[in-house]
Amino acid sequence: MEDKSRLSAEKAKQIIKNTLGDYIASQLQSLGKEERVRFLRQLKRIEGLSIRQIATITGFTFNVAAKAQDRYKRTVPLYCFIEPEI
């Protein structure tokens, strides 16, 4: 059975910020549909990140985030997105 644990809000914000780079929520809102779906698919693949967290942090509605279908349904391990603490 899969572990369905979710990330804390602060860790989710950090991971989304690292993943999206220089984009901010207001810029995401003005993206075209294809680019928006590409970003949302990328975020949905992150293990432990919920659709609700994605929607809240990016400013998209829950339905917009949920409808960005990921063709492959693969998740990426969390350690790929967290910067090492020194």
Rank of each mutant, 00 (worst) to 15 (best):
S26H: 08
G59K: 00
R45K: 14
Q29I: 00
R74F: 13
R36S: 01
K44R: 14
L31G: 03
P77I: 11
L43M: 10
K67Q: 15
D3T: 04
L78I: 05
C80A: 10
E10Y: 05
V76Y: 12
Q42I: 02
E83Y: 09
R52E: 15
F39S: 07
E85V: 06
S5G: 05
L43V: 10
L49P: 05
T19L: 14
I51E: 15
I86N: 15
S30F: 00
G21P: 11
K33H: 04
G48Y: 09
Q53S: 13
G21E: 05
L78G: 01
K67S: 15
R36E: 05
F60I: 00
R41S: 08
Y79F: 04
L7T: 02
L49I: 04
E35A: 06
T19S: 11
L28I: 07
S5V: 10
R45M: 12
I82T: 09
A12E: 13
R36I: 00
F60L: 00
D3V: 03
G32N: 05
R6A: 15
N18D: 07
I57W: 01
T61G: 04
I54K: 06
T75M: 07
E10G: 01
R45T: 06
S30Q: 01
A55C: 05
A65E: 08
R74Y: 12
L78H: 07
G21W: 10
V37D: 12
L31K: 09
Q53C: 09
D70P: 03
S8W: 09
N18S: 07
L31N: 04
T19C: 13
K73H: 14
T56V: 10
Y79W: 04
C80Q: 12
R41G: 08
T61H: 07
S30R: 02
E2G: 02
Q69C: 02
L20F: 15
Y72I: 10
